[in-house]
Design a protein around this nucleic acid. Sequence first.
DNA 1: AGACGTTCT
Length: 951
Amino acid sequence: MESSNDLEKKTHESAEDMNSEDQVRTSSSSDENLNKHREEEEEGFMSVEKISRLPVSIKFNIPKKISTRKRRKSEQEDDDDPKGEEKKAKLSFGDKVLSSYEIEILRNASRRGYLKDREKKMVEALRAEIEDEIMLFHGLKLTEREVIDFRFKRDLYELLKKTEYDDDVEGYRIPDAYDREGCIDQKKRFAVAEQRYSERKSGRGVTEQEAWEDHQAQKARVSFGAKDKQKVVDGYEFVFDDLTGLVEESCEAETAKHRGCSSKTVAEKAREEREFLPIHGYRDELLKLIAKNQVLVIVGETGSGKTTQIPQYLQEAGYTKRGKIGCTQPRRVAAMSVASRVAQEVGVKLGHEVGYSIRFEDCTSDKTVIKYMTDGMLLRELLTEPKLDSYSVIIIDEAHERTLSTDILFALVKDVAKVRPDLRLIISSATLEAKKFSEYFDSARIYLIPGRRYPVEKLYRRWPDADYLETVIRTVFQIHQTEPTGDVLVFLTGQEEIERAETNLKGRMMDLGTKSSEIIICPIYSNLPTELQAKVFEPAPKGSRKVVLATNIAETSLTIEGIRYVIDPGYCKINSYNPRTGMESLLVSPISKASAEQRAGRSGRTGPGKCFRLYDVKNLEPTTIPEIQRANLASVVLTLKSLGIHDVLNFDFMDPPPETALLKAFELLYALGALDGKGEITKVGERMVEFPVDPMLSKMIVGSEKYKCSKEIITIAAMLSVGNSVFYRPKNQQLLADNARMNFYVDTENVGDHIALLRVYNSWKETNYSTQWCYENFIQSKSMKRARDIRDQLLGLLNKIGIELTSNPNDFDAIKKAILAGFFPHSAKLQKNGSYRRVKEPQTVYVHPNSGLFGASPSKWLVYHELVLTTKEYMRHATEMKPEWLIEIAPHYYKLKDIEDSRPKKSQRSSERASTSKVDTNKKTRTSKKVDTNKKTQTSKKVDANKKTKR
DNA sequence: AGACGTTCT
């Protein structure tokens, strides 16, 4: 066995090596034994080495199945591993039995481990209790008795924690400055914080991550004097990326909630806590910089407190005398919760000095000086207040997420800043994009604020698996059987995959029987009804482990407490719009590095976490393509035009969208009559821009005036706006759900999807907006409520632009004509084989399987809401119509020959066919190209896997 | 004959 000194040196070296992923690979491939070893690991076997590294407490809980496999494995390994001999003498797990002496050692170790674990659990439970009380008694005045109790618990916890850190080798030691309860004096805290910050900047010294690595290496030594190279665990290799890749949390308020304990009122406590945030020490410098620089790019790490603190600092510094401070968030919940947190800290009622503004909910007043809002909301405000006169500071938070709205805001706000030198701009971003933002804003200063978070240990597979779902499931069980308590979060691509994983997991659990403690499976995706979503947030009962199967929703939009392990197969569905075909495609693609880091970070919220990656980060693109480059820009162009931006093609986008996308948008807006031949906005366009919906929908609404059915049309528009989430299809009740849905199609001939949606809404309204009714009809009440909100808003706007509310409920023709007024470009004609062909673009399309028209006797002509490429080119929401209406409504767009029923002449037909097939191949190459640019083996294998499972 | 990731106005 090596001396501990040597070992230390070695581990240190290897830790440094691992800072570069490349080096991990080269160094490991030079070691043949290790490589062979690893190949076998791919099978998911456990080796002696690995067993030895497991926490002692669980060593004897390894199920039989694994241990026999392991036995085989260890024999193989020992055969050609001379060094293994040494280990074998000590630990032989093979057919040979351990010596009694060894067993004794193991037993003792196990016992010690158990007690340590138990102690930790108890302390953890105490901490949870304290936190619960803080949550529960939020804002309430406590009785004296309660206060005493609470103090006792808190003091006990602090005491325990101190001792734990003093002598517990097993625990991760939080650097002094991050000690949560603040028993350490301020100066020391910030000295440490700054030290860490400057060290990292210069690329030297011990970062938190390195400290964690050291600690890990030490742990390995403590348990069995195992080899220094701790690189493979059950088929995963370790990877220690540096921290710079880590991405922003969406809401610091949440982390703040868990900090600090005191018997004072929550508001007082909240105010005190402000001083413990990492950002506090940077306050003065920050304010100086803001005073000096008009634009400042702030890189605030997770948990730095920037979202809540910066507006308060600015307010304290007097910025609000000149105008409001506006802070944008990409999500509604974030805007709301941050605002509520800040109101609490400032000690005012939400909606007074501190407020928020989101769609359907304006919680601000004349007094409001700090205003949180969604980015889309500020964009809308810009339409009425182009110079943002009522603001003195604009903060664009989470800018690295690059939502469509923030990207447009960048350019607009940059422009406004030029004419308003007094306006201050703060762009807050994650590390990766900071430089880009700075360059865009004319070399704006970048300022870094360190954060506070737990380290995450990342493990990865070098080779992706053919069937990653299988690997996911095995990993879940591996974690369940070998890792300490903590819930598991799995990132999957969609509802279908989640459901498949769920049944599969349940099946395996049955096989395992009572041998293993329980796993509680919680699926979560946005289309899941709220009642079922709630399950994810309930803590798992004692002795069981929660396994959350989530889509991307868990990446940024919602945070689940108690997650310690993340399994990340590295895929998500990405929507991209093809301007040439006017079709959206929703394809499974590899995620970006930034996403990978964000996902990994989800395991380190309540304590040190572990992330199991089923891929090699090296193969990923650094960032996701910004939305503006893959979106339908019709609405963007119309908005910009109405803001008076003439040259949209040369607009100062940070990442310009493809020119074809802009041209296509112009083309459509011109066809809709929103822009004139010179590209200037028309009267119709100005009316359309009032409605916060897609231009085709707004044209439909404006067009409904003529057909005297605006009441029906706004309902349909609202229902179409909520999208695909109206009907709910649980996996085990699909037939029932389908039947319920079809009820809205009967009674009358040719009820299309639009009319069906109208009927759904009206039926719901008749039941007085009953949730029960939704439940009985497999309809999502969440979506219906949203539709009602949108409808109410549209109703108000109808009134504003002076369109009379008219109803014509039984004249389907009128309703369909109004739909066509906006959607005439979306027409399709039935072909002989049952598929459809678009009238204007030669392209074959199909009725979506979720449409009521699917499988019904086909109508000859259809108008559809949108075109989506998933496994095929599908029309979503389609309704039957008459071809002559096309010419009646859009004579500038359709000519008689477009709708002529007679067979085209031979020459014409063959040329048509040729062009169709051309388009088909085009489409194919485009799709495969996309796959190509996305990472080779991963994607193709994933595609294979998809095919396989489908058969 | 086969199925929408996530946001926002």
